[in-house]
Simulated scan of single mutants.
Amino acid sequence: MNLIMFDMDGTLINSGTMIANTINYVRVNLGFEAFEKNYILEKVNDPSINTAEFFYGTKHFTPQQTTLFEEYYHKNCLLELEIYEGIEKLLQELRGNFKLAVATNASSVFANKMLKHLELRDYFDLVYGYDSVQKPKPHPEMVHKIMNDIKTTKEKSLLIGDSHKDIQAAFNAGVDSILVNWGFSNHEKDAIENVEELEKRIYKKFVK
Rank of each mutant, 00 (worst) to 15 (best):
S157C: 09
G161H: 11
T153Q: 03
D131E: 03
A173M: 01
K156P: 00
V133Q: 00
M5E: 03
K43L: 10
E155A: 13
K37H: 10
R95S: 10
F98E: 00
D190M: 14
E88N: 11
L100A: 05
G31M: 05
H139G: 03
N29C: 04
G16E: 06
L78N: 08
K135V: 04
Y130I: 14
M1G: 08
K205D: 00
E33R: 11
V207N: 06
I87K: 05
E193I: 14
L179D: 07
Y72I: 05
T62H: 00
D7L: 09
N194A: 09
T17V: 11
T58P: 02
E71I: 14
C77T: 13
F35Q: 03
E141V: 10
F61N: 00
M1N: 07
G183D: 01
H139M: 06
D131A: 02
W182V: 11
I192M: 00
V109K: 15
N97D: 12
G57L: 08
E193Y: 13
D190Q: 15
K43N: 12
T153S: 12
L118H: 02
G96M: 05
F55L: 07
E193A: 12
R27E: 01
Y130C: 08
G31C: 08
L91M: 01
Y130Q: 11
N24G: 08
D131V: 10
K113G: 01
N24A: 02
L3V: 07
G57Y: 06
T153M: 03
D166E: 10
D176N: 14
I178C: 00
I150V: 15
D122L: 13
L78I: 12
I83G: 00
A34V: 05
S108Y: 09
P138C: 07
E119W: 06
S107Q: 03
L94D: 09
F69P: 01
T153F: 06
A103Y: 04
E82L: 11
N97V: 05
V127E: 02
E42Q: 15
D166K: 13
L158K: 02
G10K: 04
E199N: 10
E85A: 08
T22N: 03
F69V: 02
V127W: 01
T67D: 05
D166G: 11
K189G: 06
F184P: 01
V109F: 13
A191P: 06
A106L: 08
M114G: 01
Y130S: 11
F55C: 01
K200A: 05
I192A: 06
N194Y: 13
Q65E: 14
I19M: 06
E42R: 15
